[in-house]
Design a protein around this nucleic acid. Structure first.
Ligand SMILES: [Mn+2]
Ligand SMILES: [Mn+2]
Ligand SMILES: [Mn+2]
Ligand SMILES: [Mn+2]
Lengths: 147, 147
DNA sequence: GTTGACATGTAGCCTAAGCTACATTAATCT
DNA sequence: AGATTAATGTAGCTTAGGCTACATGTCAAC
């Protein structure tokens, strides 16, 4: 039947769309470590003059071993330079990413605060949510926050 | 010096706070699979009358093997019942979770749409962001969306 | 009642992200 | 200088979540 055919097609279509959304979320998660670490390293450099592994680990709330290995992967992605027992620096690409992430983080926090969420909760929720905010959504948030 | 002492204390404090936020994000991620699968299973049961592994896998955009193992873990958490080669059902606890997740999902989508984000992008970003929205923030979103 | 297609299950692999325990290097203090 | 402390690194383990390849079960059509 034509009806059945159409129903099957549209169902298959919406299935694919929904799957695509989950795939997008998984992609965002794969970038999350790089984003959080570069943002954090930029903060440390600004505040302390240098970013050392142990401080990064403390700020991130993980063991120094976890930090070391994450830093290695972020380095392999080209966002930072690190040599044994030396403080970590950001590459140009890393600085760009850190700057973007900081701005995005602040916008998401501002959104939540403008909606009436207490500062500390806004900060907490933003830390996770920020990685799922696409550029279009970010633009929309910026308009709302600055209005 | 007292100055130095105070500075160190407040620095240590804010370090702990920031680490706590990252820890909260990791905790939210550990719940994410259970949330998405139960929501999805509830949808399938509503739309098709039953939730079968292969349909869950297709909707989630993963291989059926990945789905099988995720379903096992969600079952171990007490959200669903599954027996070999039978369709999956939700426990009372699972139905509660699915209902909550559906509502939260819709509210986050509505928020983005109200901010001017196109529907498809709103859906995509919400799929990831929803898991990082605490109850306080959800309340704030609900107020804004329904105003 | 065979056959073929689709669903389900198992085996075995990978990577990311977490951990503890131990080893080594660097810095600080007496 | 020597000892203590802190930082960094290594080894080795776990779990979650992804995959392919292969095996088995179910069901409908012929
Ligand atoms: Mn973050
Ligand atoms: Mn997330
Ligand atoms: Mn989701
Ligand atoms: Mn959802």
């Amino acid at each position: 039947m034509s009806t059945k055919f159409n129903k099957n097609m549209s169902q298959k279509q919406s299935t694919k769309q929904r799957a695509a959304r989950f795939k997008a979320t998984r992609k965002q998660h794969r970038l999350e470590t790089a984003e959080d670490y570069t943002e954090l390293i930029a903060d440390l450099i600004k505040q302390k003059g240098e970013a050392r592994t142990c401080d990064i680990a403390k700020l991130k709330g993980v063991s120094h071993v976890t930090a070391i290995r994450a830093i290695r992967r972020v380095k392999e992605l080209g966002y930072l330079n690190s040599e044994p027992r030396k403080p970590i620096t950001l590459t140009k690409k890393g600085k760009k990413l850190a700057e973007f992430c900081k701005k995005r983080h602040e916008l998401v926090v501002s959104l939540f605060i403008k909606l009436g969420v207490p500062q500390d909760i806004a900060e907490k929720d933003a830390e996770g949510a920020e990685h799922h905010i696409s550029s279009k959504t970010l633009d929309a948030i910026e308009k709302y926050v600055k209005s």
